[in-house]
Computed example of a mutant assay.
Amino acid sequence: MTIAPDDAQQGASHLYRAMRDFLQSMDDTLPGKFEITKEGIVHDMMAPIGPHELTTLHLRRRLEKVMPEDLVAHTGTPDVEAEPEGIMRHPDIMVIAWADMEVPGSFDPRTLIAAIEVVSRSNPDNDWVSKVRDYPLIGIPVYAIFDPRTGEGAVLTDIHDTPDGPRYATRKEFVYGEDVTVADWTIPTDDLPRYG
C-alpha cells in the first residue's frame, strides 16, 4: 500500500494528538516531566532537585535584572507547542514578552526570544541532543544550556537550513564563572550550583 504525503502528514498529526491527549489524561498522576519529540514521548522521571531548581532561579533573576520590563524569564506553564512539527516542549526558562503570554493554551515557540535549559542529571541527552535538534526546528532563535554536572554550557544561535532540517549554526561554549550572553543580555555564571 502506498501512502500519499498528505495521508502521511495526517497520520503524523493524528499520532501527535493521541500522544498529547494521553499526556493530558495523565494530569499529574505520574511523577516527572513529559514532553513530545519527533521520536515520541520523553519522560524525565526524576523531579528536579535542589541544584537544578536553584540554577533556574539564579538564571531567571539575573536575566530579569538586565532585560526590559516588557519581557519576562518565565519558568512556569504552559508548554511551547508546534503541532505541525509534532513537538511539545517545556523549557526550564522561556524568555518571552508579556504580551505573547496572553494566549489560550500553549505558547507559540516562534514568540520565544530564547529557551534556557538546566541539564537534568537523569536525562542529559534530552537537553544536549534532542532539544538541540527540536528547538531550531520549531523556530526558537536562541537556546542556552547550563550543565550543573560539569559546570559548563553552550549558547546556540543562528538557525539555518540544512539537508536534515533547520539547525543552529553558531555554538558558543562557556564554563561557569564566565559571563554569558543570552540573546541581547549578558549575565554572570559565577556561584551557580553544581550537582554533588
Rank of each mutant, 00 (worst) to 15 (best):
M45K: 12
D7W: 10
M94R: 04
I159N: 05
I96C: 05
D127K: 07
S120T: 13
R121H: 14
I36P: 08
I187H: 05
R167V: 14
F107L: 05
T75V: 01
V129R: 08
M101S: 05
G86R: 01
E39G: 14
D44A: 13
V103T: 15
M101F: 08
A8Y: 13
I93K: 04
Y168C: 07
E35P: 04
D190L: 12
A18L: 15
A73D: 00
Y135H: 03
V118A: 04
V155M: 03
T162Q: 09
H74W: 10
M94L: 02
D70T: 10
P124V: 06
R121W: 04
T77Y: 11
E64Q: 12
P48D: 06
A99N: 11
G76L: 09
T162C: 08
Y135P: 02
D108H: 07
F22M: 14
K172I: 10
D79E: 09
K172A: 11
V129I: 15
V129T: 14
M94S: 05
L15Y: 11
D6K: 14
Y16Q: 03
R20I: 02
L59T: 06
V175H: 10
F107I: 04
H90K: 14
M94E: 05
D7G: 12
R20V: 03
I116P: 03
P84C: 13
S122H: 04
P109A: 07
T56E: 07
D92F: 01
L30N: 02
E102L: 11
I49V: 14
L57S: 08
M26C: 14
E39P: 02
F22I: 09
R89I: 06
K65R: 14
R133Q: 10
G11N: 14
M19W: 11
R167L: 10
I41Y: 00
A144N: 08
D21E: 15
G151R: 05
D7F: 12
Q24G: 12
K131V: 13
T186S: 07
D100L: 07
P136K: 04
P104C: 00
P48F: 07
V142A: 06
Q10L: 15
W128Q: 03
I138S: 05
Q9H: 13
H58I: 11
A99Y: 05
I41E: 07
I116K: 02
S106G: 07
M94G: 06
I138D: 01
Q24I: 11
G105Y: 10
N126V: 15
Y168H: 00
M101H: 06
R60L: 12
V80H: 01
R171Y: 10
L23C: 05
L23I: 06
V80P: 08
Y16D: 02
A73N: 04
S130M: 13
A73G: 09
T111S: 02
P193E: 08
G86N: 00
G40P: 00
I138R: 00
R62E: 06
A169R: 13
